[in-house]
Computed example of a mutant assay.
Amino acid sequence: MASRETDETGTGLHAAGITVVRGGRPILRDVDVRLATGGVMAVCGANGSGKSTLLAALAGLVPVAAGSVSVDGEAIHRLRRREVARRIAVLTQGAPAAEGFSVRELVHLGRHPWRGPLQPAGREDRRAVEWALDVTGTAALAERDVITLSGGERQRAHLAMALAQGCSYLLLDEPTTYLDPRHQLDILHLVRELNRTHGLSVLWVLHDLNQAAHYSDRVVVLAEGRVQADGPPAEALHPDHVAAAFNLRVLRLPHPETGQPLCVPSAEQDAPLRPDAP
């Protein structure tokens, strides 16, 4: 059995039996998940199931009461914050608009883990920023004030900032929130393409089960702070798991173009959730 201090496999981002407590209440309970190197994993679950807390724990942003988190075999709590930021970039939902910053200045903020507090940007910093602007399609927006951008443009700019960190692991908390369907698909496709072409390992919290299934290699379903299912999308999003996690009956129907299974809410549902339920 692998140690809870180090990960003997030495690869990936691994939460080993973690429990996270906030305000005296357990939010995550004995959760064990692994983001494989080069993989794309979606975390799904009802509101209050612990999705954002799991993402924060994997980034070392919240302490764990039990278990451990490791990145490429090293216990994350033993690494300096700057070293963690060089390996793991986090993009939270509803990131502030950074009024008064140009897109280029925003993206340069992603280089802070590589520079001292007063150290000016060097050649490697500029190269990383230009690359991030290019791959996210934001180079043409580089001199625009972030506050003037549309929702989709702003999300790409913040994604460029995360990529400028030079990370191996990218954690995204509901990256499609507040975006229209077209811009949602643009962001999902862009991140998946970065995974394929640059080997970026991705964990994202997604609400849309069909988007999670289509764009991810693996899906983790949380229910009340525990792992309800973890596996390939077709297995993890089985109607039984969806019913247990969301109190939602779904049908598995083939996509009319691709034949891939879709989760479609049934017309017959159980009693609605209590008003105080998450």
Rank of each mutant, 00 (worst) to 15 (best):
T11G: 11
G67E: 05
L109S: 06
Q165S: 14
D173I: 13
A234H: 04
G60R: 11
A271F: 00
G166T: 15
A157E: 07
A243E: 14
A46D: 08
S49Q: 09
S3D: 15
T9N: 12
L61F: 02
K51G: 07
G50F: 01
R192D: 03
A164H: 12
G199V: 02
F246P: 11
R196Y: 00
L251S: 03
I76L: 15
V205N: 03
R182E: 11
L253G: 01
A271Y: 00
R78D: 09
T258V: 01
G259N: 01
A16E: 13
H198Y: 03
V84G: 07
R218S: 05
D173H: 07
P113G: 12
D30L: 06
A271D: 12
R29F: 02
R249C: 10
G39L: 08
H214T: 05
Q93S: 02
E268D: 05
Q260D: 05
P275R: 03
I147Y: 05
T6E: 15
G151S: 10
T37Q: 14
A164S: 15
A2C: 14
D125M: 11
P278M: 07
A15F: 04
A98W: 00
V103S: 05
G259C: 00
V135S: 10
G166S: 15
A244T: 07
P175G: 11
Q165I: 10
L91M: 12
E257W: 00
L141G: 06
H214N: 02
A139M: 08
P117D: 02
P117V: 04
D180N: 09
L203Q: 05
G10I: 13
G60I: 14
V250Y: 01
R82K: 11
L179F: 14
A229S: 05
L79P: 06
S150Q: 13
Y169R: 14
R115L: 15
A59G: 13
E124Q: 14
L141S: 07
K51D: 08
I187M: 09
M1A: 15
W204Q: 06
L188N: 02
R86C: 13
A95G: 03
E174Q: 15
E83K: 05
V205K: 06
L106M: 04
A121M: 12
A277M: 04
P278Q: 04
F101A: 05
P265N: 02
R81A: 14
V64I: 09
M161P: 13
